[in-house]
Design a protein around this nucleic acid. Sequence first.
DNA 1: AGACCTTATTTGTCTATACATATTACGTGG
DNA 2: CCACGTAATATGTATAGACAAATAAGGTCT
Lengths: 245, 245
Amino acid sequence: MTPPSKPRPSAGETLHQRIRSDIEGRILSGEWPPGHRLPFEHELMDTYSCARMTANKALSALAASGLVERRRRAGSFVARPKVHSAVLQIPDLKSEVENRGERYGYELLDRQKRGATREDRGRLEVHLREPVMALRCRHDAADQPFALEDRLLNLKAVPDAALQDFAILSPSTWLVDHVPWTEAEHRISACNADEVVAGELAIEVGSACLVIERWTWRSGEPITAVRFTHPAVLYDLVARFTPSS
Amino acid sequence: MTPPSKPRPSAGETLHQRIRSDIEGRILSGEWPPGHRLPFEHELMDTYSCARMTANKALSALAASGLVERRRRAGSFVARPKVHSAVLQIPDLKSEVENRGERYGYELLDRQKRGATREDRGRLEVHLREPVMALRCRHDAADQPFALEDRLLNLKAVPDAALQDFAILSPSTWLVDHVPWTEAEHRISACNADEVVAGELAIEVGSACLVIERWTWRSGEPITAVRFTHPAVLYDLVARFTPSS
DNA sequence: AGACCTTATTTGTCTATACATATTACGTGG
DNA sequence: CCACGTAATATGTATAGACAAATAAGGTCT
């Protein structure tokens, strides 16, 4: 392997960062194709005159990012990415709208405290009759309906929520600031607006909507299930991916 | 709309992993709220009887994952996450279908080599009349139309693609194996099927479709732009997030 | 009080070494 | 030829020590 060959404009790079970006460059340029065995740690020690820990740090980081795969006794190999992975940022709607430079509006449509019904149980993994709160509200951007939020909250996990009326502050905003979570899952789909949704979003019956559902847990205990329904014409989800990040 | 099943804990931990998950637990349980200063590296050395490198590794990993923020001379602090971020996995459709245990089918609908038109230029950042390839094809799952793929390829960046007829092998599958990329952007939206799309996907005109668009670059050079259109009833995108991953 | 300098503390990076662990490669005996 | 034990090798994890860089906290001088 030839020593450092890449343009290195960033003077403030540390050694293991430099090793990492050198290797990354070779992989992404196609010089080292998927399956190619990259230098052993002791070879990197020689070419960069560093300790093994330093080479290890670079390779471990590359492995963590999924660009390379490491096998004991065999070596490190350029991974063959089977999936496009990307970091999806799902911001709080209030900041999303304000970042667009538009006026944000919020209206609570419905708020019910109740014992969990059979249907609720299908959404949230709570037991029958345990206390939950069901919320429906609308988020507006530039005085136009932007999203419908349909949320079920587990009051056993978040008792403080029972004290909130959510008339001014949206449940999403309140939750982000008050409730930590450990696991979340998102499901993104599309649907045709039925009469109720079309009415609330001021769109034609049947228009396509983008639906984002999210379930949140804290240490296995369900916290909330929420569904955002956006008019398709007003909202796209954007996800970016760069391997070096 | 059933909620997904809970994630599971793991076993067989190394020391720095244990330190990390201990801290993670305290943060996620709310015991250490956002802004809280967590123990210094030398304090962790004492409580876990380990070297500083080991404590450092744990804290660095937490910082990399975004859960904590570190400042020299000040210490390490629990970070306040502002957005829900999640890793979105967008698999190759062939593997996606086969992982569901269904029969995968592929049909090429149209293939054109041409100089870039004005419209193409809007999709792909190429100059007028530069060689591109436009492809339309259909992916089936269990003999039902599953996705429509509409792709524009920059032949200047990927000249080998001109030799492929894509009659058997889908362009997505070929590209994954042959063309490395450095940046990608995804846009996820919804639309109503027009007559053409409805016909090709064998669904009603007007049914909601989930649309995933992807642009791919290599070192700033555009490689391809692709749009997948899925019948909403057949396909959901799923994204998971656990801080420990 | 405010501007400036000094010091102490904490994190960031790196070296050198050690032993553990997984897995390939090889050689031996059946 | 195959099964099995053994050695070689690359990675995984950890220790202990060193210096560099950033910066919060104090102290001094004006």
